[in-house]
Design a protein around this nucleic acid. Sequence first.
DNA 1: TCTATTTGCTTTATCGATTCAGCACACTAC
DNA 2: GTAGTGTGCTGAATCGATAAAGCAAATAGA
Lengths: 378, 378
Amino acid sequence: MNQKMTLKDIAQIAGVSTSAVSMALKNHPRIGIQTKNRIIKIAEKWHYQPNHIARSLKSKRSGTFGLVITNIMNPFYPELAKGIEDKAMELGYNIILCSTNYDADRQKYLINTLRNKGVDGIIFSSAEINDVNIKPLVADGFPFVLVNRRIRNKKLDQRIDFVVVDNTAGGGMAIEHLYRLGHRRIAIITGSLATSTALERTEGARKTLLEHGLVAEPDLMKVCNFSKERAYEATFELLSLPAPPTAIFAENDYMALGVRDALLDGGLRIPEDMALVGFDDIEACAIKGVELTTISQKKYDMGAQAVTFLVEKIEHTGSHLKQMMLSPEIMIRKSCGYAQSGGYTDSDLRLASPAMKSTRARDPAENRPKGKNAVVEN
Amino acid sequence: MNQKMTLKDIAQIAGVSTSAVSMALKNHPRIGIQTKNRIIKIAEKWHYQPNHIARSLKSKRSGTFGLVITNIMNPFYPELAKGIEDKAMELGYNIILCSTNYDADRQKYLINTLRNKGVDGIIFSSAEINDVNIKPLVADGFPFVLVNRRIRNKKLDQRIDFVVVDNTAGGGMAIEHLYRLGHRRIAIITGSLATSTALERTEGARKTLLEHGLVAEPDLMKVCNFSKERAYEATFELLSLPAPPTAIFAENDYMALGVRDALLDGGLRIPEDMALVGFDDIEACAIKGVELTTISQKKYDMGAQAVTFLVEKIEHTGSHLKQMMLSPEIMIRKSCGYAQSGGYTDSDLRLASPAMKSTRARDPAENRPKGKNAVVEN
DNA sequence: TCTATTTGCTTTATCGATTCAGCACACTAC
DNA sequence: GTAGTGTGCTGAATCGATAAAGCAAATAGA
């Protein structure tokens, strides 16, 4: 059994042609029932396993697609990848994992390799707003889906499938929440402005500030490129302002943890001296003593949905455009001061912006999925 | 360019045979220099890209291997996967990511699929001590490497490549550390005893206890199968003992966080009322306010080394057995009480067991790699 | 100058599975 | 009894790249 059995081998044993074997195993109608059964029996006996490579060569389908992310060590990705992998497996696909390491050349190389290796499609979560690698894919009609991040190109955007969270709404929710808790000087720690996520979260935040008659003061805006270290430094810059903010919105949790470190190092209390809201709801947020209020994305669902879109596209060529925007949800924990202050004030509620219309505060107890996912071994 | 160019297309354009093109692109010595250059130019002009599937069919090499893990959401794996992916890319390979979800049938199916898809080898990190899927691979001479976990089968073990951390030493280090800090009643929260990691950590712990004339009391041993919830419950069981422990060693950080939750919920202080040591050094351990003392594994290096072994095996058939055991390192933070107590006592140092011979306490400031890895965007 | 050797390219077989065309043979219909 | 329709299998081509074998023409050696 070391040497793999081929169709030819089985054909020889059964004393028929390879086509007969192929037909028998594929349940082709024009094969005799008795011959079929005989062949199937022989194939089973000899542990015949079809060679997917040969099959792919002929069929132009590999049953594999690529997943391009920036870096799997980013705590955002494992959950996304899990959703993708589970759904892919359910639909009969495997995934090749590729990390760009934030390197455009590497990304280009990876896409090229994936295509040469015959993947049926690509799921992209690392696209930048002007990503040059997207256009050729569209031009070639190569199946792909953007997940998490979009691009900024009106013509192109209307031809591209994607699954993202409504980052604008999310950014709005963070600000709205802090506003309702009485904050009027809110600083924003932004991600990389080359990404749609950061851009949209910033836009949403800005818009909500405006709705309340506030402006996003330049001094209170710190572009930190999703870097924890930069967020740490920026926090001290904010603290040394003549009029420091009373609350900080960090556009992802990782930066929020950097802010948190800075605040604690600076001897401030959270949320008493400074309220803090993050984005993503990575697992570390929920740890007792950290308890970061954050805007939660359904990363697992996002991944699964992207796979559904991609497979639909692969298997039904010419299928129509699929774009989905999931709603974020605010996870109210302790870093914002909601619990301490006893909730929103009436006057603030009266001023509630549309951003919070559909928002409900979930019980922190139900924040994390229980069961299998909670088993973490090694 | 939508339709991929093939060798045949290029041959037609150049007015030569496909073999000529193949030879030109592979720099075969028996192709004329001028013809070669002409062909190369044409291939470039038309963006010829070789079809890896066809190549694989002929060469029996796919340049891809499988990575079988239990669940990418387990915080232990991303770093391992990163090491694997980076090294794989460096050596010209891609990886297909497969999660078993702790399901033996799924694992079997995955291995089968991977082999049918023609992967050149498999890296296995989910093996259980009596894993039934390993033997057939050995019997077939299929290239694979175990990483993180080993199996327990004397005959088989001597024929299998692996890269693991010295879990026995690690378990010993945890106990030794607590012992030197004056603890004499140390509870152990174990992982699944179907895994070599948990088994060896337990053995190491037990051995070190014995070296100090202590025994691992059954009451102080809680089998928790790497479940955070189970660890939480077990902690309360320990607390309600007539003579509760003064320290707890949890065999991974995730369970340690469960223990931590329980202790905090029970109104105890860490480390004043209970010392706590974990294993793995996942990122959450280092967060301010958590600061879990833990036994650190070089997960990234482990992954990279496993790839090196696997590729060696793939590319040089008949290469000799490769087994590597990396040394763990203790990361002393705050949950053990080392800082509070001002370090080890003289008398304890005198009793130091061999387990700690090579141990040095690292400055917590150098715990986390800086730079690129610290950028976490989405 | 005539046999060797080298050079440069083409032909052909191969990898393993699939699929269409083809061809007996059986069966139905009128 | 002959034309027409099915049935059940074989043969050959195909997917795209590779490599061994083959075969001219050019070069070298004596």
